[in-house]
Nucleic acid binder design. Structure first.
Lengths: 414, 414
DNA sequence: TTCTTTTTTTCGAGGCTCGAAAAAAAGGGC
DNA sequence: GCCCTTTTTTTCGAGCCTCGAAAAAAAGAA
């Protein structure tokens, strides 16, 4: 049963509303906030005064634009960058990228390094992440507030509570409990999330009006991932991050997938699958760990040049993605798709096939009109999504509450 | 931007909370309500007094159980059956069933009649529904409150606003705007909904603890439908009712489906598909409109008796459902499944194949442990789901608001 | 310098929920 | 039959919160 709304919840909710409006609008005045939130000027004034007194918001220089108007000039409000800081960790195949982001969302420091994820033991992975974060804090810690949240994104399946990496192609180990380990090291709540979910999150922040309340982000790389925005909220599974588009079944009993099963979409559309087919290997052959971008570019070039096995392989990939999207759209309704990652380099080869396949499905009636976009580099999106996930969590769980009981800090993520 | 919470919204929300708690609990006392809602006794007392004065709730005889306790006896509260009434309409292939349900959820009157949906013009369909409802009101209207909502369930795809039947196998016509037509005739808000969504809704009301916050209801009949409860809420598409499990792709370029496309799950698992394959017809043959239950029972009997084409057909059906659920679970995470409808008569033939196929998918790791249930008769569930949909809509949109402006009635469903 | 315009703050009114205490309505014991 | 105990329900005042109206503040315009 949903709990009743108590009187003091009212303030918390409206504080959260104001903080969220400031985060979205950038530098709104109190008058703008009243318009955005629907609250009265008096209420905004009171809440803003509290938030400023607590150090969550700060008044800034008059917004440069529209400076020459009559009347009392608006005072712009902004998030206080030093109210806190969050760290993002992006763990991908062979690479670890970390960043420190202040409360206003500005990246204060970042670094990236090679990390042999396929051979490292879980303890070593945690140790490397911990060391990288410590280095980051040492270098950038002075320029931001106290570290208050960590968000770690990784390819694969995480539990819905954001505690554990259940399975990932970047490591042979499963059930790696990153969150408890990092929480012990840094004494702040940690969230472990799926990389594609962060891509979708980042896209909504980057262009809310363009990527509306409903769209799909599909990551094309060695594996196939998906992040899904449904009715304005990030879609996730009941027990895990789910949204495993790459492991929907394209052909029952079909090609061998990296996950060990047969016929998954990824077993046709992942880089390893395109390479395997283009090279003429048996589709039951064990997938290779990674195909470098150069090799994929060479395949694509040959596919463009002549109608050989390479072109057939890319056609098979496009068909798997198209029919898969069709199945997805049968359940969710059609939505724009943003293709992200290295695989978009060959999107010219994939798109016609995807649209053709999609047109043969129930969900793809408007296949021709459906908007596709591409974006080659996923890392900045993942990092941005992590930062916004951690910051909005902070907004709700810490700064909306006001007078924070010290004990509430450093506890598990809600 | 979400609107700020105004002070008067507080009361509305808590009134809605109390009404909902009474609807779920049946005959709770004020003390129980305080526990269920988390509101204080004083608040419950005040809200209950208002609701009783308005005629929404009524005090009833002391709840029969636990009568012999010390202390002031609890006064049971219940929904006032005469506070209003809703009508349910279930339109299926060749049949129209209507019922009148009072505010407490008791069926006051019902009737069912044959209706040649495949040949009737849209106008005639609306006219027949209107006539049936008028007859119902004439017979049962005196025993319930004023008619305040109508909920019409039908196989097929409806728009997400619940205004229009976009496509349905029961009629060759598309885009039938039932809601505006019936709203004109009865001057009350009308919702047009998908039948399988109502099945899922009914199951949550019938056994909330058993069918938890996440389960799938799959309708096995001539077509294949699905209702999906995800994180405690009915899942629906962005533009339509969606959840079209039957039209996810099982085999690209595969068997001809009733929807005109190829390879849909339904084209293997629907009655017409099983019959077509068992009879040895080409899988590209145009599906027949309906197979009667007797013929399907005969097929099942032959399938059980010997390993012939009938058994192969049921195997193909089970495989389509199993792999389809696997794809679904890749996106939503695995959940218990309730199979409903005539097709459950042959569930003994389907289940082993479904589990085997599911075990070969990413979502089906726990395929052996996954709970399956069957329920042969879908009509009572659909009706129940419709009634609860209409009643809870009434709870929120009318009775939670209190002093209702007369103008607000008879308007479109939110 | 004074007027106009726009933003922000102040102030009292009205509502809502809550806790504590009182009232109500039984059963139990002598 | 009367008084005590127990449990439920109502009453009452306190404390917040939001709101609208009015006042104050801070500019440009005349």
């Amino acid at each position: 049963m949903t709990a009743g709304i108590r009187h003091d919840d009212l303030r918390k909710r409206n504080r959260a509303l104001v903080i969220r409006a400031v985060r979205r609008a950038g530098q709104p005045s109190r008058t703008e906030l009243a318009g955005l939130t629907g609250l009265s000027h008096s209420t905004i004034s009171a809440i803003a005064a509290d938030l400023i007194a607590e150090g969550t918001l700060a008044e800034t220089k008059p917004a440069d634009a529209a400076a020459s108007r009559r009347g009392r000039p608006q005072v712009a409000l902004a998030l206080n960058p030093r109210a806190g800081a969050v760290a993002t960790v992006v763990l991908s195949l062979g690479r670890l990228s970390v960043a420190l982001v202040d409360y206003a969302g500005t990246v204060v420091a970042e670094q990236s390094e090679r990390l042999p994820t396929l051979t490292a033991e879980p303890g070593a992975l945690v140790a490397r992440v911990t060391a990288a974060l410590r280095g980051l804090l040492a270098r950038g810690g002075g320029d931001a507030g106290r570290l208050m949240r960590i968000c770690l994104a990784v390819q694969g399946i995480t539990d819905s509570a954001g505690r554990t990496l259940l399975w990932s192609p970047i490591t042979p180990h499963s059930d790696i409990a990153f969150a408890p380990a990092l929480e012990k090291a840094f004494a702040v709540p940690v969230a472990v999330v799926n990389d594609c979910n962060m891509i979708a999150t980042a896209l909504t922040w980057r262009a809310p009006q363009r990527h509306g309340d409903d769209f799909v982000a599909v990551l094309l790389s060695n594996g196939i991932g998906m992040g899904l925005m449904h009715k304005g909220a990030l879609f996730s599974g009941t027990r895990s991050s789910a949204g495993e588009f790459g492991h929907m079944i394209h052909r029952p009993h079909g090609a061998l997938c990296r996950c060990g099963r047969r016929g998954c979409i990824e077993a046709y559309a992942g880089n390893y699958a395109i390479w395997r087919k283009a090279e003429g290997h048996d589709e039951q052959q064990r997938p290779v760990a990674d195909i470098d971008a150069g090799a994929m570019a060479a395949l694509a070039a040959r596919a463009r040049a002549a109608d050989g096995p390479e072109r057939t392989a890319f056609r098979a990939a496009g068909e798997a993605i198209g029919f898969g999207l069709g199945s997805l759209f049968a359940v969710f309704d059609p939505a724009p798709v943003v293709f992200v990652g290295q695989g978009t380099a060959a999107f010219d080869l994939l798109e016609p096939v995807i649209r053709e396949a999609l047109g043969r499905t129930a969900g793809g009636q408007a296949a021709g009109a459906l908007a596709f976009e591409t974006e080659a580099n996923e890392l900045p999106l993942i990092r941005h999504g992590c930062a916004m996930t951690a910051l909005t969590q902070l907004d709700r769980a810490v700064f909306a509450l006001g007078a924070e009981p010290a004990a509430a800090r450093g506890r598990a993520v809600a």
